[in-house]
Design a protein around this nucleic acid. Structure first.
Length: 103
DNA sequence: ATCCTGACCTGAC
DNA sequence: GGTCAGGCCAGGA
């Protein structure tokens, strides 16, 4: 029995706790996960998410308040955010000062 | 055990 | 205000 949840599991927990209509950064998620410098790993976890997962991964963006994805994935995340009332520019830019979620 | 990779961050020019 | 290089952490081969 694992005494402590693994990082992916922690990331899932944290991302799942992000309120609807809000966004956060990979760095913040990593910080809450206990490893402030493991922001990259957060992205790696979200990338390997199972299809059936209801995890709101689209609420996680980079430090610049911009979607780090490209092409169809970028559009998908943008649509998901727009559906929640988050204003996202065509290039994936988001007004962090307005939607940033602080634990 | 080693080496490479990555949906990043920070500091410096 | 942008761009470049370095670093850090965890997973997978």
């Amino acid at each position: 029995m694992e005494r402590e949840d693994s990082f992916p599991q922690r990331v899932w927990q944290i991302v799942a706790a992000i309120p609807e209509g809000c966004v956060t950064t990979y760095g913040d998620v990593a910080k809450l996960a206990g490893s402030p410098r493991a922001a990259r790993q957060v992205g790696g976890v979200l990338k390997r998410l199972p299809e059936g997962s209801t995890l709101p991964w689209h609420r996680v963006v980079n430090r610049h308040g911009q979607i780090s994805l490209t092409g169809p994935d970028l559009q998908r995340q943008r649509q998901a955010l727009l559906a929640e009332g988050v204003v996202v520019a065509g290039n994936g830019q988001i007004d962090m000062q307005r939607y940033r979620w602080n634990y």
